[in-house]
């Protein structure tokens, strides 16, 4: 073997070491997914960051204007309201879903007749398409055809109908309630599965030792389901922060801006055709998404 052949062989080894049959096949199999994500995930994200530094409108490609869009956002009282509303909305929705989800999971984990049936029942709000669910709630809250007003008037609690989605005092609470209705099943089902995975012997041993129900819950159930609580909380929070349809279909952000959350604000900016500013608004959701993504990635790696 001549010297040049040796060099060639070593080079080939280098290349084929990286491209073992396994590697080639591996890259080949993941290629379609990567092509999709390059064009419709990475590219839009980078492009959006670029647009957010321009004064692009629908008809005009716009010039580079630095951080002006971001500065304008911070000066915009509606944007500040949107951040505040998002925080209120997400906090209460998540507290509600957690409480309801955990309570129902504990209930369904008891000795029950037809447990499968009850579990199926709990799945109903999750199974119904979101856009249908929120349109129904809009009509439950409605002043004229709404069930809630009919009911409250029938039992004599109120004289005149309340505009649950049209009054500042009620709108936020109303959309929070309906979002909880739509979202708690995911939590309940996950918690129930986790509770059922806790070994029964632990409870029996604790009962022998004289632990009461609260102690058994505190010291056996809760530690058992903690990992699930964490991951469900993180996944659900990301989707709740971004729940455009829940608000859009019920109040569209109103009355005035009482229920405007960040995705609604971004959508409103887009419909005013100021694409640069709208992009900056949508990107304001990125930091919190990054925080939760990192937490989830770390959690998944640990498992």
């Amino acid at each position: 073997m001549s010297k040049s052949e040796k060099v060639l062989k070593r080079q080939n080894n280098k290349i084929f070491g990286l491209l073992k049959p396994d590697s080639l096949f591996g890259y080949f199999m993941i290629l379609p997914a990567l092509v999709v994500l390059s064009f419709f995930f990475a590219y839009p994200l980078i492009y959006e960051i670029y647009i957010s530094f321009t004064d692009k409108t629908l008809s005009n490609d716009g010039d580079f204007i630095g951080f002006k869009n971001y500065i304008r956002l911070l000066d915009n009282p509606e944007f500040v309201t949107a951040i505040f509303n998002s925080a209120v909305y997400v906090s209460f929705v998540q507290i509600g879903k957690f409480t309801l989800g955990l309570g129902i999971a504990i209930l369904l984990n008891q000795k029950l007749r037809a447990r499968g049936l009850w579990r199926g029942l709990v799945l109903v709000p999750y199974a119904i398409p979101g856009f249908v669910a929120f349109l129904i709630w809009r009509l439950i809250y409605h002043t004229e055809v709404g069930a809630l007003n009919v009911f409250l008037q029938k039992i004599g609690l109120i004289d005149a109908p309340i505009s649950f989605l049209g009054e500042r005092d009620w709108a936020m609470a109303s959309v929070i309630f309906s979002t909880i209705w739509r979202g708690f099943p995911f939590w309940a089902i996950m918690f129930l599965a986790a509770l059922q995975a806790v070994p029964k012997e632990l409870y029996e041993a604790a009962a022998v030792d004289g632990a009461n129900a609260w102690h058994r819950f505190r010291n056996i159930s809760l530690p058992g389901i903690r990992p699930v609580i964490l991951i469900v909380f993180m996944l659900s929070t990301i989707s709740t922060i971004n729940s455009f349809e829940a608000i859009w279909l019920q109040t569209a952000g109103g009355p005035s801006d009482a229920t405007v959350i960040l995705p609604i604000f971004a959508y409103r900016s887009l419909t005013s055709f100021n694409i640069g500013e709208a992009s900056a608004a949508a990107l304001s959701l990125v930091p919190i998404s990054i925080v939760f993504s990192v937490l989830i990635l770390r959690k998944l790696r640990k498992d």
Binding site: P44, Y47, A266, I275, S279, A282
Partner: peptide, 16 residues
């Protein structure tokens, strides 16, 4: 990508 919601990407997506 799974954790990045449409609310972040819908604007450039529409333009693209």
């Amino acid at each position: 990508a799974f954790l990045t919601p449409g609310a972040i990407l819908f604007i450039p997506m529409a333009v693209i």
